[in-house]
């Protein structure tokens, strides 16, 4: 039986308490498989980002279960969560979130540094990752010297630096033109299909839907029926 990348059961996230309590997520069940591109759709405030944050172990759930490769992360101590993130998850953000004071190479190296890889090994691996995303000639460039597409590719290289099995991308094409957005989606698609990583993408960009293996809609904190099954 195939091991799930992420198994979510009866996941609830409640903000506030008493009469002012608001459910951001309510009884969410979802399986995410290795090698698939899963897209999360939904209107603003539907709970997409909350779900992504909980899967990414940067937000704690109120109740329920989230297993990452079998490891239960709900209730895991806050001291252990960074390691889970570092070992399993790569983030790609809408705003790129590159460190402006670090060069493209150093932005990638910082993840390697966190994993304990330093010196020539770190330098070589960062250069290799940037080469793979087509930025071999820009390894020493500062973020401010890069275009939006190039920044997102550095962010992808950084997300891959820890060799994660799960990539969580929040609106990765929102800040990009259509051509660059398509390039980025192709890259993410490749990460899933050729490298076997689970790629979860939150997007409003309909151009990205073509790259989805599965589309899940979330509304009012609850999962609706899948809108699309693997067609890409």
């Amino acid at each position: 039986m195939e091991e799930l990348a992420v198994r979510i059961r009866d996941l609830t996230k409640l903000y506030g308490s008493g009469e002012t309590a608001v459910y951001a997520l309510k009884g969410v069940n979802l399986d995410i498989h290795p090698g698939e591109v899963l897209m999360l759709l939904g209107p603003s405030g539907s709970g997409k980002t909350t779900l992504l944050s909980i899967v990414g172990c940067i937000l704690t759930a109120t109740s329920g279960s989230v297993r990452i490769h079998g490891l239960e992360t709900v209730g895991l101590s806050s001291r252990k969560l960074p390691r889970v993130r570092l070992e399993n998850i790569g983030f790609i953000f809408q705003g790129f979130n590159l460190f402006p004071a670090l060069s493209a190479r150093e932005n990638v190296e910082i993840v390697l540094d966190l994993k304990g890889t330093r010196g020539a090994n770190s330098l070589g691996r960062a250069a290799d990752l940037l080469e793979r995303v087509g930025l071999g000639a820009k390894i020493n460039a500062w973020p401010e010297e890069l275009s939006g597409g190039q920044k997102q590719r550095v962010a992808i290289a950084r997300a891959l630096a820890g060799d994660p099995t799960i990539i969580l991308a929040d609106e990765p094409t929102a800040a990009l033109d259509s051509h660059t957005g398509r390039n980025v989606m192709e890259m993410l698609h490749e990460l899933a299909h050729e490298q076997g990583r689970a790629v979860v993408i939150v997007t409003h960009d309909s151009r990205a839907f073509d790259f989805a293996d599965r589309i899940v809609t979330i509304e009012d904190g609850q999962i609706r029926e899948p809108a699309k099954q693997a067609t890409a």
């Binding site: 001291r79 390691r83 070992e87 983030f91 979130n97």
Partner: peptide, 16 residues
């Protein structure tokens, strides 16, 4: 602060 948030997200421990 946003950069520290990113650091947390990419796996930095609190002590880091």
């Amino acid at each position: 602060i946003r950069e520290y948030g990113t650091l947390k997200a990419i796996g930095a421990s609190n002590s880091y």
